[in-house]
Design a protein around this nucleic acid. Structure first.
Length: 341
DNA sequence: GGCATTTGACCCGT
DNA sequence: ACGGGTCAAATGCC
């Protein structure tokens, strides 16, 4: 009997194979007259590859096999079409709902410069709700990616003014972006339009009310982001484009080379830099903008051959945190590997 | 007309 | 029952 190979297994195997191949390349480069930058780049890639693998294991990716289903969720959350809702198993919908909420990240946004400095996390958000939270002075606003309708992107975020520091806003990201990254042009257009509208609203608002009770605050307007409150409990890795592997045996390919080809390194390595706000004053809410992965990816390595080495297709998967987490300090429990594999 | 926001109502988990 | 999260109609802006 052949054990079913889940896609998470394939990702892990892919990543390990990637590391192996990179190590071999590094071995070749040690003897050749290649530049130190090349070797350093390879080392970085190898380390990141294995760190990703270990991270996946530590975060229990192999245990979970659910993939959020946008359509089902859409129906499940519908408050009108009850007949259609009843056609779907409530139990199934319940499961989908639970897995959808696993990924949570929190960043702290401080509107230090008031309302002038637009903060853009690189995505276009649409507000879909606001709720007074028990025990909190300020209401919580709910945003979802504007690509939800067009591309079924499930990323959402919550913005709430901090009780302790009213000048600070806590932004919680949930879900991951499955949409294509917004283009600078479209983002700029939307921003311009929204900023104009928001500016007018605030002008009217300030004339009528005291400024503190407004939560029409837009996260783009903040200029400082703190990531010390990052909550990565239940972090779920972004989905990656997987090359179909077929029915290869896991054990045969665990350290083989046949699976190399589609890496999800880029999904992690892609720095989260807003196309709309390249201003250095703006900080994208990625807790790891400066981590080694992004740095390695951004490095202007002189060797063009690295393009052939790392030939991962660009993933359309993005997360507000760039899908990048710094796991460098994580411990790896070997028993976990064997228990899950 | 299209899109975003507002807000009361509704749904679901605890 | 309560609170958090979401929906969708109403409204406004471009």
């Amino acid at each position: 009997m052949e054990r079913p190979v889940h896609w998470e297994h394939k990702i892990l195997i892919n990543e390990l194979n990637q590391g192996k191949k990179l190590a071999k390349l590094l071995q070749n480069h040690l003897n050749a007259a290649s530049s130190p930058e090349t070797r350093e780049f390879l080392v970085e890639k190898i380390l990141s590859s294995y760190e990703k693998s270990l991270s996946m294991l530590n975060w229990g990716v192999l245990v979970n096999h659910h993939i959020p289903n946008a359509n089902l969720l859409e129906v499940q959350r519908s408050g009108v079409n009850n007949s259609l809702r009843n056609e779907i198993s409530s139990e199934e919908a319940f499961k989908k709902r639970k897995v959808e909420q696993r990924w949570t990240e929190q960043v702290k946004v401080c509107s230090g410069k008031g309302l002038e400095g637009p903060f853009d996390d690189g995505y276009s958000w649409r507000k879909y709700g606001q709720k007074d939270i028990l025990g909190s002075k300020y209401p919580r606003a709910y945003y979802r990616c504007t690509c939800r309708r067009s591309q079924g992107c499930l990323a959402i975020k919550q913005v709430q003014r901090s009780d302790e520091d009213p000048a600070a806003f806590e932004v919680t990201y949930r879900g991951r972006h499955t949409c294509s990254h917004v283009t600078p042009s479209s983002s700029a257009v939307n921003d311009s339009r929204r900023q104009t509208k928001l500016f007018r609203q605030r002008q009217e608002h300030q004339q009528r009310q005291q400024p503190d009770d407004e939560l029409s605050f837009d996260v783009r307007e903040a200029v400082e982001v703190k990531t010390d409150d990052l909550d990565i409990n239940g972090y779920i890795f972004p989905s990656f484009p997987l090359t179909p592997i077929g029915n290869e045996n896991v054990e045969e390919n665990f350290f083989g080379e046949s699976l190399i080809g589609t890496s999800f390194l880029d999904s992690f390595s892609r720095p989260f830099v807003s196309p709309a706000t390249s201003d250095s004053n703006h900080f994208s809410p990625s807790p790891n903008n400066l981590n080694n992965f992004g740095a390695a990816h951004n490095a202007q390595t002189p060797e063009s051959d690295l393009n052939d080495i790392i030939s991962a297709p660009a993933s359309a998967t993005n997360s507000p945190i760039g899908g990048d987490l710094n796991f460098s300090n994580m411990d790896f429990d070997p028993s976990f590997l064997f228990e899950n594999l």
